[in-house]
Design a protein around this nucleic acid. Sequence first.
DNA 1: CGCCAGGACGCCC
DNA 2: GGGCGTCATGGC
Length: 271
Amino acid sequence: MDYYVKNGDIILSQKDFNLDQTLDCGQAFRWKKVQSDYISSYEGYFLNDFLKISQVTSDEFILHSTSEKDFLKKWTQYFDLYTDYSELKKMFSQDKTIADACKFAGGIRLLRQNDWECLISFIISQNNNIPRIKGIIERLCTHYSGTFPDPSLLAEETPQSLEYLRSGFRSKYIADASEKVNSGEVDLKSISNLPIESARTELCKIKGVGAKVSECVLLYGMYRTDAFPVDVWIKRVLDTYYPDGFPQYLKQYQGIAQLYLFHYIRNCKHN
DNA sequence: CGCCAGGACGCCC
DNA sequence: GGGCGTCATGGC
């Protein structure tokens, strides 16, 4: 990671980073691709901090209108820039299937998102498709003037008052999660420090949070890289390529490996 | 139109 | 403990 400041923008030099692969691989739902003269540009949020970011070349980026302070304090963390993905991929590539996945799209990085936002987002994600998940979350944020609502705000809502989301049966789950987090019955900050089995148990106390959603919250919202969400796509990968189980030596970082596999199985046509 | 979606729940056996 | 229907909504 290397950078300099130019006309109020951050010019970033970064290997192992592709915006299309990272921002549109189903781990975050508030990034929008926007028209630009660059390879690609996105606008989105980490919590309520807005960012426009562009990919200029394979390893050059512009973070538009960002202070050096915000860059160092927020965005380097969010994009996980202090982690060496070349090293990770070297380890992953001992496995043929993941090696292929990394060759197909090696610019994916794990986004270090907010636990609360991840919880609500992945509750919404269940039995749903990505375009519609994005729509529901956009309606939610628009309702709160473009910001993602805090637990205290959402805790005032009921399944009825959430009808504008058109999230179907999930609205009662959103209401339950908001109530439990706001009251402290479920304490996300404490959970993030628990052994992973206990953390799963605690998260699953929320109605509508099961094995898959809790795993996503752990991985995407709490940076538990050993969390391993299994959805229908990853199930296909496991059935096809790992009938005897996922390699144990990848356990500590299997969540990140899962990102490459998820993107690969969904987008590589010859599968 | 029908099938499916980054699933969880309730009920059945 | 595993299997299966159900749950809203709408993308494709």
